[in-house]
Design a binder for these strands. Structure first.
Lengths: 230, 230
DNA sequence: ATATTTGTTATGTAGTACATAAGTACTAAA
DNA sequence: TTTAGTACTTATGTACTACATAACAAATAT
């Protein structure tokens, strides 16, 4: 095999830069010292000197940690350790346009998996008031002949509310982030949004049916998505 | 209310730095121009000049994108857009020690939700060979009186294999990342790892039972975790 | 035609300089 | 003595310069 075609497929090993190394070293440092949120960190120049690199490099590494919300800085005061937003970093790269097809498909399935697993949390935490609010959303969709964009908005609102009923804020945010992916796949495959079981029927099941009833309803609601899977 | 106690709870609004702004501008730029993976990006100095900031600031912003895997650079050649690893960024902040308790709890529930939703994908993709391999793992656990660390390792192996059977690599990686969180919570609450339904029974259900059988088995397996939820 | 050398260029790193914000200590006035 | 105001100090934020290094390109030699 000629070298030319090899270099096309095999990327040269990217050697880590100083900033990469410093980032890792800083992470280790934070872990080792068991810093807690709010704890002050050494100042940039001290870090640079200790690590034997320029302040520039330290700042590039710190810039990354700042982006993730792991540290925050104030002039004069210095840096303190902060709690990162676990989903914030995820959000930054969740763009359907730059994610490869197979990962998009994986994320699509992940959301379906979540949806099918919701029942247990829902039946643990559902309240009459919550179901009423969910029903309200479902009812606004009942009118036939709605415009497509509205249907999508309503679809998002309904499922968003459903996740909200689980009382799990992270879960709710997570599914919200997956929405663009979901929308992208559905649009790509020109699928119909409307399942065999309507939102209103799901609400009814959630209010009056058993956990298994609801899960079966959800499966029917999503069946045309599952049908596409291989 | 005195100001002193206010400043304790309310952090001063952190004004964005140039690096923050440039990061956003670069993201917008990439999106607007519809760059695809592999496309070359302008060089640092050009970016700096266009944005009216120093090369330093541009590099701090680029360092962030590099960390996320959105761009990669080679000397002389310049920068190209690359596909970020969607879970890579997530991994960076998923440290049980710095995540607050309520988010940890949310992630714990998220994993339970996934686990309960696995059945549909599993029954779509399970193979005899896969189940055989799963059984092999389950059998190594059968010996009673195993040491605790081994039990945990086996638990991880079993559920990891289970996710692998879904054929969804992202899902598998995702659950793998959630493991430390799961372990942390379980350890924290001094729960028993052993559920009412053993791994071997789950394998049996997966092989011979219906989808609903398996899901009920999984619920029983995880019941003592669900019992802790409020 | 192939191998070697040389030149060019964009990134990687170091270092200096200064603006800015935010504490701290000191001074002056009530 | 207390309070208000001022000057000082310091760590981060930003800009700029300089040079090393890797990788490509072109020119030259074999």
């Amino acid at each position: 095999m000629p070298i030319k075609s090899l270099t096309k497929d095999l990327d040269r090993i990217a050697q880590p830069t100083m900033a990469d190394i410093v980032e890792i070293r800083l992470r280790e440092f934070l872990k080792k010292k068991a810093f807690k949120p709010g704890d002050p960190l050494p100042k940039e120049l001290d870090l640079a000197e200790s690590l034997g690199v320029s302040r520039n490099v330290v700042r590039e590494a710190l810039s990354r940690l700042r982006m993730l919300g792991m540290v925050s800085t104030k002039k004069k005061v210095g840096m303190i350790l902060t709690r990162p937003d676990v989903l914030g970093s995820f959000e930054r790269v969740l763009d359907p346009l730059i994610i490869d097809q197979s990962t998009l498909q994986d994320l699509f399935e992940l959301r379906l998996t979540l949806e099918m697993g919701l029942a247990d949390l829902l039946y643990l935490r559902k309240t009459k008031q919550g179901i009423d609010e969910l029903e309200k959303i479902a009812k606004t969709q009942k009118v036939t002949g709605e415009r497509h964009t509205f249907r999508i908005k309503n679809e998002i609102a309904f499922h968003g509310k459903l996740y909200q009923l689980t009382g799990n804020e992270t879960l709710q945010r997570f599914q919200n982030m997956l929405l663009p992916v979901f929308g992208y796949i559905v649009k790509l495959e020109k699928r119909l949004l409307i399942g065999k079981v309507s939102h209103l029927e799901l609400v009814h099941l959630l209010r009056n049916g058993s956990k298994e009833d609801f899960r079966q309803g959800m499966l029917a609601h999503l069946q045309h998505h599952f049908d596409q899977l291989k």
